[in-house]
Design a protein around this nucleic acid. Structure first.
Lengths: 195, 195
DNA sequence: GTCTTTCTGTGGTGTTCGATACAGAAATCC
DNA sequence: GGATTTCTGTATCGAACACCACAGAAAGAC
C-alpha cells in the first residue's frame, strides 16, 4: 500500500504459511496468538498490523491452504477426460496429498466452535459447499453427455464420492498411510454405476 | 463413595448429558468451563467436585456419548446375519442417527489441539482404532467363512466403509439430511465385492 | 542532513481462562 | 440434640487470553 517508511522485516507469505501449518494441526480455538507469533517469528504487534486479527489471519491461512493444496487435489479432477477418470484422479491425488502432513484436509476437518469467528465459519461453509457443487455438477454434465445412465442419482453419487474423500481426511489424521488411502479409493471406484 | 453429608443438589447424569451436548457441538477447546456451568445449571466448584477437571469431564462426556449413541449405530451391525447386512445396517443406522443432531459423530470429528488434554486424546485415538478394528475383523470373519472371496483386501474394504461413515459425519455437520445420507449409503453398497 | 512514514520490540491493557479457598447450608450418625 | 461429613455459592486465584499504546528504529522523500 505504501513504498515509504520502514520496510517489513519478515516475509509475509512465509509467516502466513507458518500460521497455516499451526492452524491446520491444532485447529482455530486451540491455537493461541502467542504460539502463532513464535511459529511466525514475529511479535504480536507485527501480526496485528499485517493481518488484522486472529480470525482474519485464520481466514487468510485458509485461503492460502486452498491455493497451495487445492491444485494438487483438483487439477487431475479438472483435467479428467471422463467423469469417472476425474473422480478417480480426485481420490488418488487426495490419497497422496492427505497422507503427507498426516493431519487430513484443513477445510474438511476444520471445526470452529461457534462463539466468535463467524466470518471464518461462513468462509468455511462456502468452501465446503463449493466442493460438493463442483463434484455434483461434473457428474451431472457426465449424465447429460451420456457417460452416466439417466437413472443414476447424481446428487447421491456426488455426496458419496465426496464422502469417501472426507473419510480419507479423517483417517489420514489418524495416521493412515498413502497406500492404505489409495486402496480405499480403488474400492470406492467399484461403486461407479456400471453400463 | 459416601452416603453421609449434604447430598448433591443436581442430577449428575443429567448434568453430564448437558456437558456432552455442548462439547459435541462446539468441540473441546472452544467450550469454556463457564459455558459448561451454565448449560449444566451448576457452579464451577460443584463441577470440579463432581468431575475433577474440564478434561476429565470431557472424557466422561465422550464415554457417555459412546454408551448412548453407540448402540444406535452398532446394534444392527452386530446383529447382521452376513457381513454385507452388517455393513448396510451400519451405514443406514448412521444416516438416521447422524442427521438428527446435525453435528456428526462426536468421536469422528473430535479435534482436540494437542496442548494439554493428552488423556482425552489417547481415549479418542483408542475409540477410533477400536472402530476400525471392529469393522475390519467382521470382514475378515466373513472372508474366512467364504462370504467374501479370498482375493478381497479386507483391510481396504474396512477402511472404505468406515470412511463412508466418517464422510457421512462430515456432511451431517454441514447440514445433510437423513435421506441424502441414506442415498450415499446405498451407493456405497454397490461397491460390495460381487461374486 | 532533516522530515515523514512505517514497522518493530517492550510492556501492558482489560478480559477470560481453568481451577479453588472459604464459609455457610444440608444431610447422616450417634 | 450435637458432631461429622459433604455439597453449594461467593468471591476470588494466578495465568493465559486477544489485543494494543508507545517510543525507538529504519527506510524513502526532499
Amino acid at each position: 500500500m505504501a513504498d515509504r517508511g520502514r520496510p517489513r522485516s519478515f516475509d509475509r507469505e512465509r509467516a502466513l504459511a507458518a500460521a497455516m501449518l499451526l492452524f491446520w494441526r491444532r485447529g482455530y480455538s486451540a491455537t493461541s496468538v502467542a504460539e502463532l507469533c513464535q511459529a511466525m517469528g514475529i511479535g504480536s504487534p507485527s501480526l496485528y498490523a499485517a493481518f488484522g486479527s486472529k480470525e482474519a489471519l485464520y481466514a487468510e491461512a485458509l485461503t492460502l491452504y486452498g491455493e497451495r493444496f487445492g491444485p494438487r487435489i483438483w487439477s487431475g479432477f479438472d483435467a479428467g477426460p471422463t467423469a469417472r477418470a476425474a473422480i478417480r484422479s480426485l481420490l488418488l491425488d487426495s490419497a497422496g496429498t492427505l497422507a503427507e502432513g498426516a493431519c487430513g484436509c484443513m477445510v474438511t476437518l476444520a471445526n470452529i466452535g461457534e462463539p466468535a469467528a463467524c466470518q471464518a465459519q461462513a468462509l468455511l461453509a462456502g468452501m465446503r459447499a463449493a466442493i460438493l457443487e463442483k463434484v455434483t455438477s461434473r457428474l451431472a454434465a457426465a449424465q447429460a453427455e451420456g457417460e452416466l445412465p439417466a437413472t443414476v442419482d447424481v446428487a447421491a453419487l456426488g455426496r458419496f464420492y465426496l464422502g469417501v474423500q472426507q473419510g480419507m481426511s479423517v483417517q489420514a489424521r489418524d495416521g493412515a498411510t498413502q497406500p492404505a488411502l489409495a486402496a480405499m479409493a480403488e474400492v470406492a471406484m467399484a461403486a461407479w454405476p456400471g453400463p
